[in-house]
Design a protein around this nucleic acid. Structure first.
Lengths: 142, 142
DNA sequence: GTATATGCAAAACTTTTGCATCCTT
DNA sequence: AAGGATGCAAAAGTTTTGCATATAC
């Protein structure tokens, strides 16, 4: 059931307490997208003593190991989410901060085509839509 | 020829030395995309004494006035460019840092459609392709 | 036992703000 | 003359780093 240790070992990272805790946090937390500060606060509220510096180090290592993905939204803080192998882009609600995901093959295809036409080979890309909910679920809907 | 004062007056901003200098800098500089630090360094190398805090304030005011556009690339620093009324997205070269622009009506249309389908109305968006030059112009080409 | 990880504090880096002074209108 | 703008220094916010100690293998 708890395959966290295996997942860590697979990457060559030592299986330490902080790493297991933080990985489990992403696997179980209510919110899928979290900043370093979000993670740290969750740990504190769980009475789990992990230093903020360790949180940053672990998040960076997890990103390099392919366990997490990092995104930079317009608020200036990096947010992380579990990498489940399916690339996607984001819609960020400007009212409530909720983050949803989407994937569009046509946008992906056109990006490649455009880059190539301008003489580039895409290594990575980031597409974020900043929007306002028009559905009823948004708690901050005007 | 120098319509800088008019452009500033039109926005309701007072025509001050720093504002004229910084606007002229964007109108004449070799690079179209500049961070606050880039601007500040250019000013220093021109022996123009403008405080870094003023640079930040002016850039923010110019953005709010619609004179400049702000983008956040993955390096964590905001970059500004002249707003010439034509929305576009960016290709950032990961070797040399060069920034190119593109616009694709189809991508724009699909973004709107996707947001709507998920219950959002787009307010803004940011699309950046991180890529490597395959043409000869890149000075850092491998 | 050795190499790596962690915690804490300090530092780095970008951006913002308080306040006295100066400048535009 | 009055309100807004600027400069400087200090502060704020996020992320990184140095170093002594603790932990995994």
């Amino acid at each position: 059931m708890n395959d966290t240790p295996h997942k860590l070992k697979d990457t060559g990272l030592k299986v330490t307490g902080p790493r297991q805790t933080i990985l489990a946090l992403f696997q179980n937390a209510a919110q899928r997208h979290m900043s370093a500060e979000d993670v740290y606060k969750l740990l504190v509220s769980d009475n789990t003593a992990i230093g903020l510096a360790t949180v940053y180090r672990v998040l960076t290592q997890f990103e390099q190991a392919g366990i997490l993905n990092r995104s930079n939204f317009e608020n200036g803080k990096a947010v992380f989410e579990l990498n489940e192998g399916k690339h996607h882009d984001h819609i960020v609600c400007m009212d409530c901060g909720r983050v949803e995901e989407f994937f569009d093959a046509e946008i992906e295809a056109r990006q490649k085509k455009i880059a190539k036409a301008q003489g580039y080979e895409i290594e990575d890309h980031s597409l974020s839509l900043y929007a306002r909910c028009i559905k009823s679920g948004c708690p901050y809907k005007k």
